[in-house]
Amino acid sequence: MQRTAVVTGASSGIGAATARALASAGYRVILAARRSARVQEVAEGITASGGQAEARTLDVTDREATARFAASLERCDVLVNVAGGAFGTEEVAQAVPGDWRRMFEVNVLGTLHMTQALLPLLRANRDGTVVVLTSTASFTNYEGGGGYSAAKHAQHALTETLRLEVCGQDLRVIEIAPGMVYTEEFSLNRYRGNREQAAGVYEGVEEPLRAEDVADTVRWAVTRPRHVNVDLLVVRPVAQAAQHKVHRTSTKET
């Protein structure tokens, strides 16, 4: 039977790119996301390119919905937890608790819900893989990023703990931590729809990572031999040496 991969957050950005990458590697891909029309469009694009894909509408923060989703599947060999996001850039003194709660729910509890729901299927063939997409923010803090970094730190702790707990069960647990990635929506959501501020994040950076770069990294990690586990893989653009160290070219005309 063809191996099946479930990808959350698959309606755009890294999630959509990961679904395409795994489909090109021969997986039947189940794309899960909140936006029905968008995720259906991505799935249809994969199918039109010769891959096998199925779109499902799913909010990973809804525990009962994730349980129903898992119960509807016959097989799951790979779970890629991509659904997440950052909301707000306020410093701790002005932080909006609702933003922090929202980030924790989608990044951490969403990963928890999906992983718990699909663990029985992932263990069934003693050949499963869980991938969690975190961030370099999962181990580095910065001003204005307290809520997002807190959520990603928690997601990292979840991933590392799961790896310890399933040791000996033939289940791989992989963490991919990207640095600066240019996608259509991540910074736009973070800056509450302000396109000028969102664009400023990447200003002067000649080649930030793209969603396809991260997706290719996920595909590489998942397709290693079964005895190889990529515990934590950090991927950044060459222009970014660290969270606060980014090479930017001049954007002014001379």
Rank of each mutant, 00 (worst) to 15 (best):
E44A: 15
R3Q: 08
N107M: 02
P208M: 05
N107P: 00
A37N: 11
R195E: 15
T217R: 09
Y182R: 12
N125V: 02
A177Y: 12
T134M: 06
T129S: 09
S49A: 06
G200H: 04
A70F: 11
L22F: 04
G146A: 15
D213N: 15
E203F: 07
A37Q: 14
I30M: 08
A67T: 09
R75Y: 12
V78R: 05
A67S: 08
E143N: 12
E175I: 04
I176V: 15
K152C: 10
E64F: 02
I30T: 12
S11F: 07
G128H: 01
Y202N: 13
T61R: 14
A239P: 01
E44N: 15
S72A: 10
E196T: 10
S12F: 01
A83D: 12
P225N: 09
R3S: 07
L22R: 05
T8I: 04
F87L: 14
V234I: 12
K252V: 15
L73T: 14
G50F: 00
T8K: 03
P120W: 06
R163F: 10
I176P: 09
L79H: 07
T18L: 03
V78Y: 01
A83I: 07
V82S: 07
A242N: 14
A55H: 00
L121G: 02
Q243I: 15
V130H: 03
L73P: 03
A21R: 09
T8D: 06
R219Q: 07
T57L: 02
G200P: 06
S24I: 11
M180P: 04
T47K: 10
D216L: 15
E41D: 13
T136M: 08
A43I: 07
D59K: 01
L79C: 06
I174S: 00
A117Q: 01
D231M: 13
R192L: 00
T183Y: 07
R172E: 03
G45E: 14
A71H: 05
P120T: 03
F87I: 12
S250P: 07
K252D: 15
Y142P: 10
A19K: 10
G168H: 01
N81M: 00
V166C: 01
G144T: 11
R226M: 13
R34Q: 13
T57Y: 09
F87Q: 15
A239E: 13
D59V: 03
A70S: 12
A93M: 10
T183S: 00
R236P: 08
S49C: 02
G168M: 05
E41Q: 08
R68L: 13
E203D: 01
D231Y: 14
A21T: 03
G110V: 11
H247N: 12
T47N: 03
P237I: 05
